[in-house]
Design a binder for these strands. Structure first.
Length: 498
RNA sequence: GGUCCUGUGGCCGAGUGGCUAGGCAGAGCUCUGCAAAAGCUCCUACAGCGGUUCGAAUCCGCUCGGGACCUCCA
């Protein structure tokens, strides 16, 4: 089998993945800022990394997956004045800041569960790691890369850049960055216009503030990830992930902070997911074009024709590579819904096949070989920077083969028992364990099936008497209720909920 | 302005220089009391113009279009 290769933003190439400690992987993903509902763009990133997490586990790695909850300190805009988002929202909703945090953290977890994302192994909060952040800031000051102005601590970017390339992650030179930076207000305190705050002095009216060696304040925008990844994954760890929008500022500053503190590059592989777009423009909180998950599940949104199930959305996202932009549209979602249905039917057909060793002479070597190649292609594609779309294409190529085996167009003995088992095992592993899909039909109760079996029996008797009026009535009425009856080749009848 | 990404058939989308990805939609056929489902077949595209090459969707250059980041955002 091939080796796992991942696209590393730091080097802008695909590299063979070699963890720091053989057999173990440390992965940090930037989590949500919990002052409002997560939108689908946020969800895309978390789903992408959920797949990556699941695949690493499938490969046999023991993975420590850390995803933070940002619940402190983010300012509105690039200013040293102004409230943090939690205080502002708290005033609007007349709640304690920690009530806001609680509310949206619970909402976030609920959404992650609906999408069937596995929880991270550690989910640390910024407010729970204030002292770690303060210690890190102290160390950066001690190392000479930060300065204090009236209770606020700034990182000295220009000094840092003399030793290490500050813009390494996005391939930018400091001069270019300085040129591109617009003059913003409230920057008089800073020595350099790219300098960013590690610790921010709080005004008396700030609701969230903590004591520090520099007075009452709150942590800067980027230090929490550096402090918490360092604490749980070490000074140098394997994978750091997040949305592409975080690379230029947040991740760039994380690298600088960790270098300045520990004198080591914190992350070996930087993985960035691309944006979800609506009509070609990026979905974002501030642009107001965000879809909330519940709007999608209920269809309650002006741009949506109907409701879509969480698994349809998950599948929709799997059809595109995580580093490509994905455009959100009704047409694309409907296509995904139908495609997923077809895949489930193929999977159900596959699982129902029981091998019968009738005659080995009927083995179709060509078909056998084709099946094996397509199945082995699953791992090959995933090893190529998690190409989920390619895996799905192979599955769809196998679907007609599976369906033919089931419906008798092709004899089951055309493939060997081992190959059938290989298909069954790999489909199951990929659909459930790696892609994290679940069959929403599973909720169907035994009771419903019992009732339908009765109707199917009555219809069968009617058909035997050529009483098609009755038989069609049963089928049509059930269809109106959203239940489809299918007369199979062998005379049995199956049913499905649309 | 700077740093990048991107342009694939009606739509969505994968793509390692040579072997028509795949899905959805559409058309025809087989099966069937009729449907549905399933199977088979058809629809062979790579923004434009040059270049490299025996051979380019894939590499290079230019032109045009779209997008992201440089300011909180996954």
């Amino acid at each position: 089998m091939s080796e796992l290769k991942v696209y590393n933003s730091l080097t802008r190439t695909k590299e063979v993945f070699t963890p720091v400690t053989p057999g173990y992987v440390g992965m940090y993903v930037c989590g949500p800022t919990v002052y409002s509902d997560v939108h689908l763009g946020n969800c895309r990133t978390f789903i992408s990394f959920d797949i990556i997490y699941r695949y690493l586990k499938y490969l046999g790695y023991k993975v420590r997956y850390v995803r933070n909850i940002t619940d402190a300190g983010h300012l509105e805009g690039d200013r040293d004045e102004g409230d943090d988002k939690f205080s502002k929202k708290a005033r609007l909703e007349q709640l304690e800041p920690m009530e806001i945090v609680q509310k949206y953290t619970l909402g976030f977890h609920k959404v992650m569960e609906l999408f069937n994302n596995l929880p991270p192994t550690i989910e640390p909060t910024a407010t729970g790691h204030i002292s770690e952040q303060i210690e890190m800031v102290k160390q950066i000051i001690a190392n000479g890369y930060a300065y204090i102005v009236d209770g606020t601590v700034y990182f000295d970017v220009e000094k840092y850049n003399k030793e290490k390339p500050y813009g390494i992650l996005t391939n930018r030179k400091l001069e270019d960055l300085l040129e591109g930076t617009r003059a913003l207000g409230g920057q008089d305190e800073k020595k350099g216009r790219l300098d960013f705050a590690l610790w921010i002095k709080a005004k008396p009216e700030h609701l969230m503030q903590w004591p520090s060696p520099w007075g009452m304040g709150f942590p800067g925008w980027h230090i929490e990830c550096s402090a918490m990844s360092g604490k749980y994954l070490g000074k140098q760890f394997d994978i750091h992930g997040g949305g592409m929008d975080l690379a230029a500022t947040h991740h760039t500053n994380e690298i600088a902070q960790s270098q300045a503190c520990y004198h080591t590059s914190p992350v070996n592989y930087w993985l960035h997911t691309n944006m979800l777009t609506v009509n070609g423009a990026r979905m974002s909180k501030t642009a107001g074009n965000g879809f909330l998950p519940h709007q999608l599940f209920t269809g309650d949104h002006p741009l949506l024709d109907k409701a879509y199930a969480p698994m349809t959305v998950r599948f929709f996202m799997l059809q595109t590579h995580y580093r490509s932009t994905l455009d959100f549209s009704n047409e694309a979602l409907q296509a995904a819904e139908k495609g997923l249905k077809r895949l489930w039917e193929a999977y159900e057909n596959l699982s129902s096949l029981v091998y019968q060793d009738i005659d080995n002479a009927q083995l179709d070597n060509e078909l056998e070989k084709r099946c094996i190649n397509l199945v082995n292609g699953f791992d090959e594609s995933m090893n190529d920077d998690f190409n989920t779309a390619k895996v799905l294409a192979n599955m769809f190529e196998l679907a007609p083969v599976i369906n033919s085996l089931k419906h008798g167009q092709v004899l089951l003995a055309s493939i060997s028992k081992q190959t059938l088992e290989l298909l069954q095992n790999k489909f199951s592993a990929y659909l459930f364990d790696i892609f994290g899909l679940k069959n929403e039909k599973e909720n169907d109760s035994a009771l419903l099936d019992g009732v339908l079996q009765l109707l199917i029996q009555i219809r069968k008797e009617a058909r035997e008497k050529k009483d098609f009026t009755t038989s069609d009535k049963i089928r049509n009425k059930l269809q109106q209720q959203g239940i489809t009856l299918k007369d199979e080749k062998n005379g049995s009848v199956s049913w499905a909920i649309d």
